[in-house]
Design a protein around this nucleic acid. Structure first.
Lengths: 149, 149
DNA sequence: TATTAAATAGAATCTGTTTCTGTTTAGAGG
DNA sequence: CCTCTAAACAGAAACAGATTCTATTTAATA
């Protein structure tokens, strides 16, 4: 299945500018999360002129539209990931290679039941993210430059 | 049960300085999360001289020692909360009044099983946090100055 | 008490992110 | 195809939360 970025942008009433399409392509080309700065570096390899503020703006707009998603990272910086799976789910983030994988389990039903029943509160949103080593990095000898998480 | 901040600091081989004790007291006095800036404001009410860098340093040290915990917030700023419950658990954060409440359910067993079994990966850490309205704020007419989360 | 490593204040700095201004451009409508 | 306009853009500047640096003070040990 080949992603038609133009179509998804049209659905969101967003102009399909070359830079915007490139940003989407950059994020979709690998299942890893990237920082705005990193996206910018890759974008500048394709366009002589490319502004970092445009990258930030596009990432925000695209995330708002649901085409990409923000990764919650303990370092509190922005990271984005191109997610094909539209339904609600969470991610398993490899702290070695940055690969992001979808999780099937969520567990919010139980938590929502607890909050409603015990705390008498109302759930608005939640974040759940799991960090660890993916299959490849687990089998690795560990000569990676692992990030601390 | 009265917290003996001095004792917990001694356990961590940390000096029980007046400012450090005050920071702990400020955080423990209410079950809400505070930003470093807010802690600083409250600290300055007790000490004529108090540096913001000291607040940051203390919050980091205390969080490292487990005396307080960092709250994961969508705005990606630092927030801290004095948590009495030492065992592993997660939090229900009220987006209206900032109150933090402990959750019993975690759900990581299922997720760990999925990651081990399906993805063949290894879990290192995880974040789970739930945002919503606490009992009091749910019953409210909504005249609060709610934060957007 | 004397000592010393830890903690501190305050200034300066850093870095990721955002705002601002004027210019360019994608895409709708003629 | 052209024309037009709001959206998108580049680049500079600004911003804010967080951190580093240096000299000074202080808690806690001996």
């Amino acid at each position: 299945m080949i992603d038609d970025f133009g179509a998804s942008l049209r659905n969101l009433r967003l102009k399909a500018t070359p830079r915007r399409l490139a940003i989407l392509d950059i994020l979709a080309s690998e299942p890893v999360y990237l920082s705005p700065e990193e996206v910018w570096q890759k974008l500048k390899a394709r366009f002589k002129k490319a502004g970092l503020p445009s990258v930030y703006r596009n990432l925000e707009i695209l995330a708002q539209g649901g085409v990409i998603i923000q990764i919650i990272h303990p370092d509190r910086k922005l990271y984005y990931y191109h997610c094909r799976n539209g339904s609600h789910h969470h991610h398993f983030v490899c702290i070695a290679c940055r690969k992001v994988q979808d999780l099937a389990f969520c567990g919010m039903d139980e938590i929502e039941r607890e909050i409603k029943g015990v705390l008498k509160g109302r759930v608005v949103s939640h974040v759940l993210q799991v960090y660890g080593l993916c299959k490849e990095c687990t089998n690795d000898t560990g000569i990676h430059d692992k990030e601390s998480v």
